[in-house]
């Protein structure tokens, strides 16, 4: 009865295949679960305003400083909106950068330049490019959206004494500069502790360390220090949040393109 045998064999193969695939499936599911929880815990913050100091260092330790103020607005069912006004270097003071991010579609970005008093739209394929010549890319700074990645749980790990989930994220957007990122998310509060970024050729490009977490509105943990180290060029950028306030009364109208030209 060769027919039966084949069927049985095929059935066996199916079961074996399922058993083999199951852990992978489970990892994907667990990864998404953790990411979902992370997103959920960071939902409902409304709007915020912050002052940011960026310190850029090259391989030989030369420093350069950037200062900016950022306003942010949470948008339910779409990406967040943010407006960044540059204070330093002095020759770009007053320049303002507006982003309407979207989970899957390309972000909308505009830049206002006071020297020519004009607003210019910026193509958002640059998301992989550096922000203000720092080691942060745009895509490292935009809001965390589930639809942007494919998640996979890798393992548990203890980082600096903190128990973490280690999650692999594969960007969905082909314009991303990364082949994947690996995030350490703490198990107690689902806060990102560290992210490793891998470039398109699968080499470790940079590592982000998030620290000095503070609790806002009794609910939202935010890092006051982000340190990005580029392993390939030896350059690094420290991003310090000098001030951060929530519930500052911003609304969608404050993030309209027309607002840009009225800034100063």
């Amino acid at each position: 009865m060769p027919h039966l045998n084949t069927t049985r064999f095929a059935g066996l193969m199916l079961v074996a295949g399922l058993l083999l695939a199951l852990p992978a499936l489970a990892d994907t599911e667990k990864g998404l679960q953790i990411a979902t929880e992370q997103k959920k815990r960071d939902s409902g913050w409304g709007d915020s305003e912050s002052k940011i100091l960026m310190i850029l260092r090259d391989a030989s330790g030369n420093e350069s400083v950037r200062r900016m103020r950022t306003q942010a607005l949470e948008v339910v069912d779409d990406g967040d909106k943010s407006l960044t006004i540059f204070d330093e270097p002095r020759d770009v003071r007053g320049s303002a950068f507006l982003t309407h991010s979207h989970p899957t579609a390309e972000d909308d970005q505009w830049l206002y330049l006071p020297a020519i008093n004009r607003v210019r739209r910026i193509a958002s394929r640059n998301k992989s490019g550096p922000f203000m010549a720092s080691e942060f890319a745009y895509e490292d700074m935009t809001s965390f959206e589930l639809a942007k990645y494919q998640f996979r749980y890798l393992r548990d790990d203890v980082l600096n004494g903190v128990s973490c989930y280690v999650i692999e994220r594969i960007p969905a957007d082909k314009f991303s500069g990364y082949s994947k990122t690996v995030a350490w998310v703490d198990q107690a509060h689902y806060r990102v502790q560290q992210i490793e970024f891998y470039d398109k050729k699968q080499s470790l490009l940079k590592t982000l360390q998030a620290s000095n977490y503070q609790l806002f509105l009794d609910k939202y943990w935010r890092p006051m220090l982000l340190q990005m180290q580029n392993h390939q060029t030896g350059k690094r950028t420290d991003l310090k949040v000098e001030e951060l306030q929530f519930n500052v009364g911003r609304s969608a109208a404050d993030f309209d393109v027309n607002v840009l030209e009225r800034l100063r």
Binding site: D91, A115, S128, G129
Partner: peptide, 25 residues
């Protein structure tokens, strides 16, 4: 400075101006 800012903001990964300008310009 602002043209440069604009341009730098528009460049994708790896195509920045660091081969022509140093960190603090």
């Amino acid at each position: 400075a602002q043209y440069l800012l604009m341009y730098e903001m528009s460049l994708p990964f790896g195509l920045d101006l660091n081969n022509q300008l140093n960190l603090d310009k």
